[in-house]
């Protein structure tokens, strides 16, 4: 297992290095002058020259890459051109919205989708099972933004249980934050929990039709224990991969929902930075999200290997 860990860890470092190269060179060395691009058509020669110096455009691209990496490693993401504040400050603010939101939505989809899937697997071809499957179909097919607007209409405007948007900030305390993130999280999790429930239902049914499940029953293991110890443990491996993918997509993919609820998240930051041609911010945020996705993938692989001895062996 330790060997497996180091193997994966080294490959994590490689992917990070590779991703940083790709991100850097796509945004930095594409045709055209980045400084002129960022400043727009009306910029004077002097301002462009000043920005070029700030961006180290006067040295070679390779050298610039190492300057960038070096400052990233010390936590310096550079200075945003449009906001004139350090990029890290911008990101820090947004992270405390985006991460909790992603986590919140993920927890909702696990705690609702997982039991639903387990239930649906067991009451296959009954009324309850059909209802669950039908709801799942709906969840997969309803567009996120429409569902979000529907939630706002019902729970904010009609019932006024939750705020319709905005983010109070963590200084206001835990509960108001949770309250303001609740509707966005529900909107984000609806389609994801449906996918999750479908995967759980399918892989659990698959596992329950396997011979080892029958063997467990033949030993006199009660059905509930057989499902928990034998079927679920086998069914959970594809599930972990799905969860990893979902978390990654939630981090940066919540732009639409962030816009509907006026949340200052990472998705909106990237969107604004792109429209304002602030390449420094774009680069920083994209690198950070890539880092998060690679780390999540690493964790997914480790937990799959911890569960399945055959995966460990294949790498060794």
């Amino acid at each position: 297992m330790l060997h497996f860990f180091w193997w994966r860890f080294i490959s994590l470092l490689f992917s990070l290095a590779f991703a940083s190269i790709v991100i850097f060179f796509i945004l930095d060395t594409l045709p055209g002058d980045p400084a002129a691009f960022m400043l727009g058509l009306n910029a004077t020669e002097e301002t462009i020259g000043a920005l070029r110096e700030k961006l180290h455009l006067d040295v070679s691209a390779v050298r610039r890459y190492f300057i960038w990496i070096g400052s990233l490693l010390t936590g310096d993401f550079g200075m945003s051109h449009t906001y004139q504040v350090p990029v890290w400050e911008l990101i820090k603010e947004r992270i405390f919205v985006s991460f909790p939101l992603a986590f919140y939505a993920l927890l909702l989809s696990i705690f609702i989708g997982f039991p639903l899937g387990v239930l649906a697997a067991q009451c296959n071809q009954t009324f309850l099972g059909t209802v669950i499957i039908g709801t799942n179909q709906l969840g997969v097919s309803v567009p996120e933004f429409w569902f979000a607007i529907l939630l706002v209409f019902i729970f904010s405007i009609l019932l006024s249980w939750f705020p319709s948007g905005g983010f109070p900030g963590w200084s206001e305390g835990f509960l108001p934050v949770m309250k303001s993130l609740f509707l966005p999280a529900v909107a984000l999790s609806f389609s994801r929990l449906s996918v999750l429930a479908r995967v759980v239902r399918f892989s659990l049914q698959e596992a329950m039709s396997q011979d080892y499940f029958r063997t467990a029953l033949a030993k006199g293991v009660p059905r509930s224990r057989a499902i928990w110890y034998h079927a679920l443990r086998n069914a959970i491996i594809p599930l972990i991969s799905i969860l990893g993918l979902q978390f990654s997509s939630l981090l940066a993919g919540a732009i639409v929902i962030e816009n509907v609820f006026f949340l200052p998240g990472l998705g909106r930051l990237v969107f604004q930075a792109v429209t304002q041609r602030d390449l420094i911010v774009v680069r920083g945020v994209v690198m950070l999200i890539t880092f998060a996705v690679i780390v999540v993938t690493f964790l997914v692989e480790l937990s799959c290997a911890a569960l399945d001895p055959r995966l460990r062996k294949r790498i060794c």
Partner: peptide, 20 residues
């Protein structure tokens, strides 16, 4: 099951839980 009557299954390759 298991205490009064138990059974040895035919397919040894699939009758065991691969994760235990």
């Amino acid at each position: 099951r298991g205490r009064d009557i138990s059974m040895i299954f035919q397919e040894p390759m699939t009758a065991l839980n691969p994760l235990m």
